[in-house]
Design a binder for these strands. Structure first.
Lengths: 116, 116
DNA sequence: CGGCTATATCGACACTTGTCAATCTATCTG
DNA sequence: CAGATAGATTGACAAGTGTCGATATAGCCG
């Protein structure tokens, strides 16, 4: 996996240029693809869904490991990808790490896909 | 690549259950992930963008190969993935194959991502 | 028919990715 | 401090993916 650089979501969604409006640049395509790749995985989609549906819309790793049916290192791995992609925030409180959806992050991505 | 089965877009977008509304099923996550994976590639994002921006919103392989900077087999390969995912339609007229965006396909995907 | 042109398919190869077991780090608690 | 617990990191490995060159297929035209 290439975690060489973070994905500043603001770069991807930097306002108002839907994919189908005009030809996207090679650079823009690369950035958008990296963000979409972060979401395009069954485990990560379920993580997003589970965190959003959880109380207070946040959850710690221990809440997610068992219902997801994957090992703790694997879940940590997926969560890191989502944080790096700007989808989740990570908030360590005591021994636990709480993950939460970044407000508007998914919507920003969705905006780039709409055709109208 | 696994082209074992097509991705009926209607299954994925089968109405009204945004990702963050409630916990998604493992099966739903799998399907949505497959659709997103089809889009989550720089070359394919550019293909979508280029086709949408082209005259009549359709283009043949020969229109796309050179500006994309990839070989013809590779472009055909990517186009097949997009057709299988229900993003493009393929219309063979004479020697040429014309690809076109399926109306509403991207919007259906975007709908599943919105948080509101 | 025979050659030309546009696409598709196949086989191969390097690179990426998802997963796990083992280990490390940090924090809480006695 | 010692032990326990939550989570991150590392290393390894199988499976998946993007790309290409070579080849096959199919439609046009002389």
């Amino acid at each position: 996996m290439s975690f060489t650089e973070l994905l500043p979501l603001t770069d991807v969604t930097a306002c108002c240029a839907p994919l189908t409006r005009e030809a996207i640049s090679a650079d823009g395509a690369e950035k958008l693809a990296r963000t979409l790749k972060a979401i395009a995985d069954p485990a990560r989609l379920r993580l997003i869904s589970m965190v959003a549906a959880h109380d207070d819309a946040e959850a710690c790793v221990c809440d997610l490991t068992e219902p997801l049916g994957l090992g703790q290192p694997t879940v940590s791995h997926h969560l890191k990808i989502l944080v790096d992609a700007g989808i989740f925030t990570r908030d360590k409180r005591g021994t636990w790490a709480y993950y939460k959806l970044v407000p508007g992050a998914l919507d920003s991505i969705a905006q780039l896909l709409i055709t109208v």
